[in-house]
């Protein structure tokens, strides 16, 4: 296993990450030689259109997929070639929240069982302190995401879209992760609910000391949550920097187009 000397505070390092797959007879280059690093406590935004490779990149970081070539280190250990049974640290430390809480929550499970599910995983269990009380942790995370105590006994369909996304966030928090990866966390939500979930994520990052990675096609969402930003296009990183700098003075026409596309209220047309 390749070790490398991590700089202090470094959590992730990725080198020349490439992912190809076959779609029918066609070969797709989803990720094309991407380098990335992420320090503890950073809030990184990954922005781009559909098919830009942003979701592929975070799936590789989370160990949910393997690269065709290139390497990923997490806390100084290369995870790219580790067998699944040795990924326990990663599985406990890195949690994901997805776009649509309707499809990411099992409709037949009670919310309490959904949230504590990561704690029962064989790989994650070994990483937790002995005697972790699931019911106690459930109560803690329900409170952290501002859901009522009795929510655990109910089913996902009894909740609104915004509440379901809170349930997904509570599940991600259950094993006390270091990194939260949110893939389009508010894209499926009404504008009126979006603000509440963004506020919740901001609060949680601060109170739980999380490192945050946010994937979005919407630069405004990333601007609100993240201090650093990479812009992806066709599997490559085309721009990166401090969020405010990229937002104020985008260096590429592509980033500018992403910014211009954000709908603003237009008070007179034509």
């Amino acid at each position: 296993m390749a070790e490398h000397t991590a700089t202090p505070g470094e959590l992730y390092r990725a080198e020349a990450l490439t992912r190809r797959y076959r779609d029918g007879g066609r070969e797709v280059l989803a990720l094309d030689s991407v380098d990335l690093h992420l320090d503890r406590g950073q809030r990184l935004g990954i922005v781009g259109e559909s098919g830009s490779g942003k979701s592929t990149l975070v799936r590789l970081l989370a160990g949910l997929d393997r690269p065709t070539s290139g390497r990923v280190w997490f806390e100084g250990t290369e995870i790219t070639r580790l067998p699944e049974r040795d990924l326990g640290v990663l599985r406990a430390s890195v949690q994901m929240v997805f776009q649509d809480p309707r499809s990411s929550l099992n409709p037949r499970m009670r919310v309490g069982d959904i949230i504590t599910e990561p704690l029962r995983s064989r790989l994650v269990r070994r990483q937790l302190p002995a005697g972790t009380d699931h019911q106690h942790r459930l109560a803690e995370v329900l409170e952290a995401v501002d859901l009522p105590e009795d929510a655990g006994r109910r089913y996902p369909h009894e909740f609104s879209g915004g509440q379901r996304q809170r349930i997904a966030i509570a599940r991600a928090l259950a094993p006390k992760p270091e990194v939260l990866i949110a893939d389009e966390p508010v894209s499926a939500l009404d504008v009126s609910v979006r603000a509440q979930v963004l506020n919740l994520l901001t609060d949680l990052v601060a109170s739980q000391g999380l490192t945050l990675v946010v994937v979005s096609h919407d630069l405004m969402v990333v601007r609100h949550l993240c201090d650093r930003l990479v812009v992806m296009r066709q599997g490559r990183i085309v721009e990166e920097g401090a969020t405010e700098t990229v937002y104020e003075t985008p260096a590429t026409a592509y980033t500018r187009a992403l910014l211009d596309a954000v709908p603003r209220i237009r008070t007179s047309r034509g």
Binding site: G162, S192, R194, Q196, N199, T202, M220, R223, H224, L225
Partner: peptide, 29 residues
């Protein structure tokens, strides 16, 4: 609704206004 629609006017990282700040009449969670 108007307040929540203007993400471009907010200061990054600061608490965003929500509908509940203006209207407490329903369940908007």
């Amino acid at each position: 609704l108007v307040a929540t629609a203007r993400l471009d006017l907010t200061v990054p990282g600061q608490r965003l206004p929500t509908v509940d700040d203006f209207y407490a009449g329903g369940d908007h969670g």
